[in-house]
Protein backbone atom coordinates (compact mmCIF):
# COMPACT_ATOMS: atom_id res chain seq x y z
CA UNK A 1 0.00 0.00 0.00
CA UNK A 2 1.53 3.25 -1.13
CA UNK A 3 1.12 6.07 1.33
CA UNK A 4 -0.44 9.28 0.13
CA UNK A 5 1.99 12.03 -0.75
CA UNK A 6 1.75 14.47 2.10
CA UNK A 7 3.23 17.58 0.48
CA UNK A 8 0.60 20.11 -0.52
CA UNK A 9 0.59 21.17 -4.14
CA UNK A 10 -1.66 22.76 -6.69
CA UNK A 11 -4.04 20.40 -8.42
CA UNK A 12 -6.34 21.16 -11.29
CA UNK A 13 -9.74 19.50 -11.34
CA UNK A 14 -12.03 19.70 -14.35
CA UNK A 15 -15.72 18.88 -14.04
CA UNK A 16 -18.82 18.90 -16.20
CA UNK A 17 -21.82 19.86 -14.09
CA UNK A 18 -25.52 20.50 -14.70
CA UNK A 19 -26.15 23.97 -16.02
CA UNK A 20 -28.75 24.86 -13.37
CA UNK A 21 -29.09 27.45 -10.66
CA UNK A 22 -27.86 26.30 -7.29
CA UNK A 23 -25.14 24.00 -8.61
CA UNK A 24 -22.35 26.40 -7.73
CA UNK A 25 -23.71 26.76 -4.19
CA UNK A 26 -23.90 23.00 -3.85
CA UNK A 27 -20.30 22.55 -4.92
CA UNK A 28 -18.82 25.49 -3.04
CA UNK A 29 -20.77 24.41 0.04
CA UNK A 30 -19.10 21.02 -0.20
CA UNK A 31 -15.65 22.65 -0.28
CA UNK A 32 -16.46 24.80 2.71
CA UNK A 33 -17.81 22.06 4.96
CA UNK A 34 -15.07 19.59 4.18
CA UNK A 35 -12.41 22.26 4.61
CA UNK A 36 -10.92 22.23 1.12
CA UNK A 37 -8.69 25.13 0.22
CA UNK A 38 -9.59 26.43 -3.22
CA UNK A 39 -7.33 28.81 -5.08
CA UNK A 40 -9.54 29.46 -8.07
CA UNK A 41 -12.82 28.33 -9.52
CA UNK A 42 -13.88 29.02 -13.10
CA UNK A 43 -17.36 28.22 -14.35
CA UNK A 44 -18.66 28.68 -17.87
CA UNK A 45 -21.18 27.41 -20.38
CA UNK A 46 -20.17 24.65 -22.79
CA UNK A 47 -21.12 23.46 -26.27
CA UNK A 48 -23.89 21.49 -24.56
CA UNK A 49 -26.55 23.82 -23.10
CA UNK A 50 -27.29 21.26 -20.36
CA UNK A 51 -23.77 21.39 -18.99
CA UNK A 52 -21.37 23.87 -17.46
CA UNK A 53 -17.68 23.28 -17.11
CA UNK A 54 -15.79 23.96 -13.93
CA UNK A 55 -12.07 24.25 -13.47
CA UNK A 56 -10.98 24.19 -9.86
CA UNK A 57 -7.50 24.77 -8.56
CA UNK A 58 -7.10 23.08 -5.21
CA UNK A 59 -4.16 23.44 -2.89
CA UNK A 60 -3.78 20.27 -0.94
CA UNK A 61 -2.08 16.93 -0.52
CA UNK A 62 -2.98 13.80 -2.40
CA UNK A 63 -5.50 12.69 0.23
CA UNK A 64 -7.41 15.97 -0.07
CA UNK A 65 -7.33 15.85 -3.85
CA UNK A 66 -8.75 12.33 -4.02
CA UNK A 67 -11.34 12.99 -1.34
CA UNK A 68 -12.47 16.13 -3.10
CA UNK A 69 -12.86 14.40 -6.44
CA UNK A 70 -14.74 11.49 -4.86
CA UNK A 71 -17.01 13.68 -2.77
CA UNK A 72 -17.80 15.90 -5.76
CA UNK A 73 -18.49 12.88 -7.92
CA UNK A 74 -21.24 11.84 -5.50
CA UNK A 75 -23.23 14.98 -6.22
CA UNK A 76 -26.06 14.36 -8.63
CA UNK A 77 -25.20 17.53 -10.53
CA UNK A 78 -21.62 16.49 -11.23
CA UNK A 79 -21.66 14.50 -14.46
CA UNK A 80 -17.96 13.99 -15.11
CA UNK A 81 -14.90 14.83 -13.12
CA UNK A 82 -11.18 14.28 -13.40
CA UNK A 83 -7.82 15.53 -12.33
CA UNK A 84 -6.53 17.46 -15.34
CA UNK A 85 -2.90 17.13 -14.29
CA UNK A 86 -2.94 13.44 -15.18
CA UNK A 87 -3.15 14.35 -18.88
CA UNK A 88 -1.13 16.55 -21.19
CA UNK A 89 -3.14 19.75 -21.07
CA UNK A 90 -3.20 23.32 -22.25
CA UNK A 91 -3.64 25.64 -19.29
CA UNK A 92 -4.63 29.26 -19.80
CA UNK A 93 -5.65 32.18 -17.69
CA UNK A 94 -6.56 35.71 -18.69
CA UNK A 95 -5.49 38.86 -16.88
CA UNK A 96 -6.79 42.39 -17.18
CA UNK A 97 -4.72 44.97 -15.35
CA UNK A 98 -5.17 48.72 -15.17
CA UNK A 99 -1.98 50.68 -14.61
CA UNK A 100 -1.16 54.40 -14.49
CA UNK A 101 0.15 55.41 -17.92
CA UNK A 102 1.16 58.99 -17.76
CA UNK A 103 3.50 60.21 -20.50
CA UNK A 104 6.63 59.50 -18.37
CA UNK A 105 6.02 55.79 -17.88
CA UNK A 106 3.92 54.89 -20.89
CA UNK A 107 6.80 53.84 -23.11
CA UNK A 108 8.33 51.70 -20.36
CA UNK A 109 5.07 49.84 -19.85
CA UNK A 110 4.67 49.33 -23.57
CA UNK A 111 8.16 47.84 -23.65
CA UNK A 112 7.28 45.35 -20.89
CA UNK A 113 4.03 44.49 -22.60
CA UNK A 114 5.94 43.73 -25.84
CA UNK A 115 8.19 41.25 -24.08
CA UNK A 116 5.22 39.46 -22.49
CA UNK A 117 3.14 39.72 -25.68
CA UNK A 118 0.37 41.45 -23.75
CA UNK A 119 -2.17 43.68 -25.47
CA UNK A 120 -3.23 47.22 -24.76
CA UNK A 121 -7.01 47.11 -24.71
CA UNK A 122 -7.74 50.57 -23.35
CA UNK A 123 -5.81 53.79 -23.16
CA UNK A 124 -6.89 56.99 -21.45
CA UNK A 125 -5.00 60.16 -20.68
CA UNK A 126 -3.37 58.66 -17.62
CA UNK A 127 -4.31 54.96 -17.49
CA UNK A 128 -3.93 51.89 -19.61
CA UNK A 129 -5.59 48.45 -19.46
CA UNK A 130 -3.41 45.52 -20.46
CA UNK A 131 -4.62 42.08 -21.36
CA UNK A 132 -2.44 39.02 -21.03
CA UNK A 133 -3.25 35.37 -21.61
CA UNK A 134 -1.01 32.55 -20.55
CA UNK A 135 -0.22 30.03 -17.89
CA UNK A 136 -0.68 31.35 -14.36
CA UNK A 137 3.06 31.59 -13.65
CA UNK A 138 3.51 33.83 -16.68
CA UNK A 139 0.75 36.08 -15.37
CA UNK A 140 2.40 36.10 -11.94
CA UNK A 141 5.71 37.14 -13.46
CA UNK A 142 4.10 39.89 -15.52
CA UNK A 143 2.28 41.27 -12.47
CA UNK A 144 5.57 41.35 -10.57
CA UNK A 145 7.22 43.44 -13.26
CA UNK A 146 4.28 45.78 -13.70
CA UNK A 147 3.63 46.19 -9.97
CA UNK A 148 6.25 48.92 -9.33
CA UNK A 149 4.29 51.21 -11.66
CA UNK A 150 1.28 50.84 -9.37
CA UNK A 151 -1.66 48.60 -10.14
CA UNK A 152 -4.93 50.53 -10.03
CA UNK A 153 -7.17 47.52 -10.48
CA UNK A 154 -6.82 44.01 -11.80
CA UNK A 155 -8.78 40.87 -12.48
CA UNK A 156 -7.77 37.32 -13.32
CA UNK A 157 -10.23 34.80 -14.69
CA UNK A 158 -8.94 31.77 -12.89
CA UNK A 159 -7.53 28.78 -14.66
CA UNK A 160 -9.09 27.15 -17.71
CA UNK A 161 -7.85 23.87 -19.07
CA UNK A 162 -8.32 21.50 -22.01
CA UNK A 163 -6.49 18.26 -22.72
CA UNK A 164 -4.42 18.10 -25.90
CA UNK A 165 -5.34 15.83 -28.82
CA UNK A 166 -8.55 13.83 -29.02
CA UNK A 167 -8.98 13.56 -25.25
CA UNK A 168 -12.15 15.15 -23.87
CA UNK A 169 -13.48 15.31 -20.37
CA UNK A 170 -16.76 13.84 -21.56
CA UNK A 171 -15.05 10.71 -22.86
CA UNK A 172 -12.80 10.16 -19.89
CA UNK A 173 -13.23 6.93 -17.99
CA UNK A 174 -14.36 7.00 -14.46
CA UNK A 175 -11.42 8.24 -12.40
CA UNK A 176 -12.45 5.74 -9.73
CA UNK A 177 -10.05 2.89 -10.24
CA UNK A 178 -7.01 5.12 -10.59
CA UNK A 179 -7.51 6.47 -7.12
Amino acid sequence: MAEYKKDPKKNTIAALVSNKSGVLTRISGLFARRGYNIESLTVCATEDPELSRMTIVLIGDEYTLYQMIKQMDKLDDVKKIGCADELDCVYRELLLVKVPATAEVRSQIVEIKEIYKAKVVDLSVDTMILELTGIPTKLDAFIKVIEPYGIIEMQRTGLTVLARGRHTLKDRDCYGDNI
Binding site: M1, K70, I179
Partner: peptide
Amino acid sequence: IDNAEIDKNVRADIHVM
Protein backbone atom coordinates in the same frame (compact mmCIF):
# COMPACT_ATOMS: atom_id res chain seq x y z
CA ILE B 1 -20.59 1.10 -2.39
CA ASP B 2 -19.31 4.61 -1.77
CA ASN B 3 -15.95 5.27 -3.38
CA ALA B 4 -15.44 8.29 -1.14
CA GLU B 5 -15.35 6.01 1.91
CA ILE B 6 -12.39 4.08 0.53
CA ASP B 7 -9.26 5.45 2.20
CA LYS B 8 -11.22 8.26 3.87
CA ASN B 9 -10.52 7.30 7.46
CA VAL B 10 -8.45 4.12 7.32
CA ARG B 11 -6.21 3.36 4.38
CA ALA B 12 -7.19 0.12 2.64
CA ASP B 13 -4.60 -2.18 1.11
CA ILE B 14 -7.24 -3.66 -1.12
CA HIS B 15 -10.44 -1.90 -1.99
CA VAL B 16 -13.46 -2.88 -3.98
CA MET B 17 -16.08 -0.34 -4.83
